[in-house]
Structure formats: C-alpha cells, structure tokens
C-alpha cells in the first residue's frame, strides 16, 4: 500500500514527500519506543508512532525506514521535516489514536512485523 492510500485510510495527510521511489509498504511497526524500532531488520516498513521529536527521524534514518505515520495529531517540527526531506523520508500525519490507526491499516491489508 502506498503512502497516499495509507493517508486516505487513516483520514490523514502526506505532509512530507522526501522519497518518491519507496512509497509503498507491506508491513508496519507501531511504537513510541525508538529502542524497539532499532531492533528491527524488516525492509519496506511503515513506522507508526506518537513520538514526534528529532530522534524519531534519526531512528528512521539509521534503520532505513522511509515512511513514518504520526498518530494522535502529533506534528513534526520544521527542523524535523527538513531532515526528513534531506534523508528521503515520507511523513504522514493523522488525528487517529495509535490503536485506531493500526486497526484500520491492518484491516486494509498491512501486516505486522511480528
């Protein structure tokens, strides 16, 4: 599923398109704990999180995660968006809770990492 379909499903918006070639994901991982995100080795992953700080973007950069969905109406800062664009990371935001976003996307066919 591509980021535009994901945004549509969760009634959110694509607010940063840093990467045009890796806009599709098969699996997602939801966490506010970046330590757990850094233990994953899955490719083509959507990170679903409510943690909107610079470490979220750095974690995605280090772990080669190209797509992030911020839930609970969390908004990345201008500085975060600049780094995301520079590092080729796409960002979607929505006002759904993490549970609601996960439920909708799982129902739409996105699989869990484990």
């Amino acid at each position: 599923m591509d980021i535009f379909e994901i945004a549509k499903q969760v009634e959110g918006s694509v607010i940063c398109q840093g990467n045009n070639s890796e806009i599709s994901v098969n699996r997602a991982f939801a966490s506010d704990l970046m330590s757990d995100v850094l233990t994953l080795s899955t490719d083509s992953l959507l990170l679903i999180t409510g943690l909107a700080n610079m470490q979220t973007i750095r974690t995605a950069e280090m772990a080669d995660i190209k797509n992030i969905l911020f839930v609970r109406n969390k908004k990345p800062t201008t500085e975060m968006l600049a780094i995301a664009r520079q590092e080729g990371i796409n960002i979607i935001t929505c006002s759904k809770s993490m549970f609601a976003a996960c439920s909708i996307l799982h129902g739409a066919g996105i699989k869990p990492v484990y």
């Binding site: 704990l33 970046m34 330590s35 757990d36 995100v37 233990t39 943690l51 700080n53 470490q55 979220t56």
Partner: peptide, 15 residues
C-alpha cells in the same frame, strides 16, 4: 521521553 532508555542499547549494539 526521547524514546530511549529501555535497556536495549548495549545488547543491540552487540547484535
């Protein structure tokens, strides 16, 4: 609050 401090850092480095 920054998303770290779960006690996974050193084991994850080693891995």
């Amino acid at each position: 609050q920054m998303g770290f401090g779960a006690g996974m850092g050193l084991p994850n480095m080693k891995k």
